[in-house]
C-alpha cells in the first residue's frame, strides 16, 4: 500500500522534473517575448533598442531601455510600476526625448475584469489619449483636475495608470535634463506637482 503510493509519487515527480526541464527554456523565452513586444509597441518604428538599464531615483527603482536612431538617443521605454486597485500595475511607457509620451502598453495587470482591466484594451480611448501627451497637459485624471479621462467606474486604476506614465515622463525628463528634477506625485501631493507645471509654463 505504502509502496504503491511511494512509487506513484516518485513517478509523478520524475515526470514533472522532465516537463519542467523541457519547458524551462520556452518559459524564459515567452517572458522575454512579452517584454520585447511591450517595448517595441511603445517606441517609434525603426529605432535601435539598447540594453536594459536601471536607475534609482526618488526612492524608486526604474528599468528602462534607451532607443537610438543614427547614434542619437531619440526615445526611452520605461517600465513603471504603481499600485492599482487589485495590486501592482506595471506598464511600459515610451517617451520621446523631448518628454512627449509616444505610447504605453500593459506588462502586468491585476485589475478587476470589465472595470480596471479595460486599461489593457488597445485602441480604447483611455489608451489612445496618452499618445502624444505633452508637457502642456496635466498627467492626472480629470476628477483630480488633470487632463486624463478615466475609465468608467475605475478611477483608482486610471489614477495608477496616469501616475505610472507621469513617473516615467519625469524620469526621462531627469535623464535628458529637460525638467528641474524627478518628481513623482501621488493623489495626495497634487499641489506640489501643479507648481511644477506652472514652473514649466513660466519657462
Amino acid at each position: 500500500m505504502v509502496l504503491c503510493l511511494t512509487l506513484v509519487c516518485l513517478f509523478c515527480a520524475a515526470v514533472l522534473g522532465g516537463v519542467y526541464a523541457l519547458t524551462y527554456e520556452p518559459i524564459l523565452r515567452a517572458n522575454e517575448n512579452v517584454l520585447k513586444a511591450s517595448i517595441a509597441e511603445v517606441l517609434p518604428e525603426g529605432v535601435e533598442i539598447g540594453e536594459y538599464e536601471t536607475i534609482e531615483t526618488g526612492g524608486k527603482n526604474f528599468e528602462f531601455y534607451a532607443a537610438t536612431k543614427d547614434g542619437d538617443e531619440v526615445a526611452f521605454a520605461v517600465k513603471s510600476t504603481t499600485i492599482g486597485f487589485g495590486g501592482p500595475l506595471t506598464i511600459m511607457v515610451g517617451v520621446l526625448s523631448d518628454g512627449t509620451v509616444y505610447n504605453t502598453s500593459v506588462v502586468t495587470c491585476n485589475e478587476t475584469p470589465g472595470l480596471g482591466a479595460k486599461c489593457q484594451e488597445k485602441d480604447s480611448h483611455f489608451r489612445e489619449q496618452f499618445k502624444g501627451f505633452g508637457s502642456d497637459k496635466k498627467l492626472w485624471v480629470t476628477k483630480d483636475g488633470g487632463d486624463v479621462d478615466a475609465i468608467t467606474a475605475s478611477t483608482i486604476t486610471s489614477r495608477a495608470y496616469a501616475l505610472a506614465v507621469s513617473n516615467a515622463v519625469a524620469l526621462v525628463n531627469y535623464l535628458t535634463g529637460n525638467a528641474p528634477s524627478v518628481d513623482t506625485y501621488t493623489g495626495a501631493s497634487l499641489k506640489k506637482d501643479e507648481s511644477n507645471v506652472q514652473e514649466e509654463e513660466e519657462k
Partner: peptide, 18 residues
C-alpha cells in the same frame, strides 16, 4: 489526487511557455 496534481502542474508549465 497525485496523478491529477501532476497533470495540472504539467498544464501550468506548458501554458506559461506557450
Amino acid at each position: 489526487i497525485v496523478v491529477i496534481a501532476t497533470f495540472v502542474t504539467v498544464l501550468q508549465l506548458v501554458m506559461q511557455a506557450f
